[in-house]
Amino acid sequence: MNFADLQVFKSVVEEGGVIRAASKLHRVPSAVTTRIKQLEASMGVKLFHRDKQRLHLSPAGELLLDYADRLIRLSDEARDVVSGTKPRGVLRLGALESTTASRLPPILAGFHARYKDVRLELITGTNDALLKQLAERQLDAAFIAESPPTKAFEHLPVFAERLTLISSLDHPPIRRASDVEGASLIAFPEGCAYRRVLQRWLGRDSLVTFRVLELSSYHAIIACVTAGAGIALMPESVLDVIPQAKVQRHAIPKAQAQITTPLVWRRGEISPSVLALRTLLASMPQQKRAA
């Protein structure tokens, strides 16, 4: 398999045909067609179904496209890192809803102002969903809620967070798990690290007695808690940026309350844009990031 053939293959797919790909690559159509046939011969499969003047990706072509995209992107990253090229292109960044709301706005604004050739794409999700997307190369880096569980990732501790339990204003004091027996839990869907912290505090066995209301927005969670629908666990930093929240805060043990938000990326695959973000974070005042 020739790397140049992969680039031609990807161009044909992106441009929707040989003629447009040839124009983009500054080649004659016959040369592009020859490259595609050579690639098909080397792999022993048909990459396209030909219907008169139109090409449609075959199942094998669909599989190859994903690998071609990864290989070409890694090649570009390697060239940029080795040559010291200024960050450019797309930075696909993942983040928790809480981090996005309370921590990222000034950081993203600073990065955007400093690196004008980088287009930021921000995707939010739960801790586990973001790690999965990172492993599958759908993201370049992500802010998650806990240190990555495997050595497949590298990370930089960034934000120190304190989790707090919230209830409606008329709820009795909450000092132990038994004080919320019978209450509904309001949390993000499975895969949320904060939800796991709450489960550990309540006790895994007792969780089956609780009803869980799953929501995907902190504003919605706070609104439901305010209305008395149940209790929730969230970072104090989120509550601090929603001053109109009419909820009561209840402290949980320090061991569960204190967590650190890291920036995570795939081991050995740090791109110029991720390196620039990491450097920016490392330069932040100490009181604004984790120790």
Rank of each mutant, 00 (worst) to 15 (best):
F3G: 02
L6Y: 03
L6I: 10
V13D: 05
E14T: 05
E15V: 00
G17V: 05
A22Q: 06
A22C: 04
H26T: 02
R27M: 14
V28Y: 02
A31P: 00
I36M: 11
G44A: 12
K46F: 02
L47T: 09
E62M: 12
L74Q: 15
S75L: 04
A78H: 10
R79Q: 11
K86D: 09
V90E: 12
L91E: 06
R92G: 06
L93K: 08
G94H: 05
E97V: 10
P105A: 06
P106H: 05
I107F: 01
L130T: 08
K132F: 08
L139K: 12
D140G: 11
F143V: 05
F143A: 09
L163G: 08
T164V: 15
S167Q: 08
S167F: 03
S168P: 00
D170H: 10
H171M: 13
H171T: 13
P172V: 11
G182I: 07
A183V: 06
A187T: 15
W201E: 09
L202V: 09
V208L: 13
Y218A: 03
I222M: 10
C224R: 15
L233D: 05
M234S: 08
P235W: 03
E236V: 04
I242R: 11
V247Q: 09
R249K: 14
A251T: 10
K254Q: 15
Q258A: 11
T261I: 15
T261G: 01
P262G: 04
R266T: 13
E269W: 11
E269H: 14
S271V: 06
V274K: 05
A276P: 01
L277I: 05
M284N: 02
Q286T: 13
Q286W: 02
Q287L: 05
